[in-house]
Amino acid sequence: MQILKPATAGTLESSDLMVTLEPGTDGIELSLTSSVMNQYGRQIKKTVLETLERLEVKDAKVTVVDKGALDCTIKARVECAVLRSCDKADKNIDWGGVIR
C-alpha cells in the first residue's frame, strides 16, 4: 500500500502507542521513542517493520511513540494508521488478506 497522506493512530496513554505515518521517498524511515526502549526497543521495531512489510508499505516516514504496548496493540495501531493514510479506513475493510 502506498502512503498518500499523513495519518495517525493510537494514544499516548499507558500500554498504548501513537503511530504517525507520513509519505516518504526513501524507504521506511522509522523514529521510535519508548518508555521501555532498553528492554523491548528491538522487539517493537521488529513488529512495526514486519507489519509495514506485510501491508506492502515501501516508502514512509514512521514516528512511533510507545508507552509499553503489547505486540498485538502495535500491529493494530500500525495497520490502522496505514489504512487511514491511504484512505481505506472509511470504506469496507478487506479483512482476511494482508489485513488480519
Binding site: P6, T8, T11, L12, E13, M18
Partner: peptide, 21 residues
C-alpha cells in the same frame, strides 16, 4: 495519573485533524 498524556493525545489529534503535523 497520566493526565498530561491524555491532554497531549487529545491536542495532537485535534491539530492533525486541522492539518498540522
Amino acid at each position: 495519573e497520566g493526565l498530561l498524556n491524555e491532554v497531549i493525545t487529545h491536542l495532537m489529534e485535534n491539530r492533525m485533524e486541522r492539518g498540522y503535523f
